[in-house]
Simulated scan of single mutants.
Amino acid sequence: MHHRTVEELMTRDVVRARRDTPFKELVRLLAENDVTAVPVVDDLDRPMGVVSEADLLRKSADQADPSGRTPMPNLEAWERAKAEGSRAEELMSAPAVCARPEWSVVEAARLMETQNVKRLPVVDEADRLLGIVSRGDLLRVFLRRDDAIREEITGDVLRRTLGLDPRDVTVEVRDGRVTLGGTVEYRSLIPVIEQLCRGVDGVVSVAGRIEWRTDG
């Protein structure tokens, strides 16, 4: 099976900031390039952190409301320091949470989830910036055509990986939802088939109606 990697999905032409990039220049970078965040790199092009719209908005949130209708936010010390910052290295969220180009979609998605980030700078073995991958990039695997998913399950999962005759197991795919049918020799093989099918890029769900000949 071929799993799309971060390298295949990432954006290569990355808008980046330097540690001394001033606040207004950061706002301009986001606006002119229609992005919501930029990695901040050092002199060797290694990501130090990421500056996002949320980081920059702390500047406005920390200012007094002229109307007096909203109270001043109760910021932690580190949040107040960022709100008072004027350069990228003072405003960024650090350290940068990075991915490797050879990672799978699953690896990148799990890191985003555990670290609660929306994007990952992608770095090489020397930690130099290669690209950036976002949640939207990872979701592109679910745009695969149903017939391409079915072909991979039939050819790669059933025939080449498990050595099964594809005629024994029927595969239907609709909007990424896989339905399996047919009959296999052993009952214990059914969860293996279903698990491998879930690992195919673009699969949303797997429902099994496979029967068995031997309960072994």
Rank of each mutant, 00 (worst) to 15 (best):
G49A: 10
R100E: 12
G136S: 14
R19T: 07
A207F: 13
R80N: 08
I153P: 07
L143W: 14
E76D: 12
G199R: 08
V14N: 06
M10E: 05
A61G: 10
V192I: 14
Q195E: 15
L158M: 06
M72F: 09
R187F: 03
E151T: 10
V122C: 05
A94L: 03
R12H: 10
M1P: 03
L29I: 05
V97W: 11
D65C: 06
R144W: 09
G176S: 03
L164K: 06
C197R: 04
T183H: 11
D55G: 02
I190G: 08
P22I: 00
T114I: 15
S86F: 08
R69K: 12
R213A: 13
V35A: 14
G181R: 02
E7V: 04
D175F: 07
D20L: 04
D43C: 07
R80T: 12
L30N: 04
G199P: 02
P22L: 04
R145T: 00
L56H: 00
S104M: 07
R100I: 01
P191N: 07
D13E: 13
S52E: 09
E8T: 11
M112T: 12
M112L: 14
V203A: 11
S205Y: 09
M1T: 13
L75P: 00
V97H: 11
V206L: 10
E107R: 04
L164T: 03
P95W: 14
G136E: 14
N116P: 11
G131I: 00
D124E: 05
T179H: 00
D124Q: 05
A96F: 13
V106K: 13
V14M: 08
N74Y: 06
T179C: 01
S188Y: 09
E125R: 05
A83V: 07
G182Y: 05
L139H: 14
V38F: 10
R28Y: 04
S205K: 05
A207Y: 12
D20K: 00
I210G: 10
V40L: 04
T70Y: 12
D13K: 14
R145S: 10
R69L: 11
D43H: 14
V184T: 01
A148K: 10
R110P: 11
M10T: 08
A31M: 15
V203W: 01
I193C: 01
E152H: 01
R4E: 15
V192G: 03
T21M: 01
L91I: 03
R150T: 00
G131T: 00
P39R: 06
P101G: 04
S67V: 11
I210V: 02
C197A: 08
L138I: 12
A77M: 08
R110K: 15
R187C: 03
E79H: 12
D146T: 03
R177I: 01
T5N: 03
L180W: 03
P47H: 09
M112R: 08
S86A: 15
A31E: 15
D34Q: 14
Y186F: 13
A88W: 06
V123T: 12
L180R: 01
G155H: 02
D201M: 03
A96E: 08
I193K: 00
R16C: 07
R167D: 12
V203D: 12
R174P: 03
P47I: 08
M48S: 11
G131F: 04
L143T: 15
T161Q: 05
G181N: 00
G68F: 03
T179N: 02
E102L: 02
V184M: 01
T161K: 09
V122H: 08
D175S: 10
M10W: 04
V117Q: 11
V105P: 09
D175P: 07
K24D: 10
W103N: 06
D43R: 15
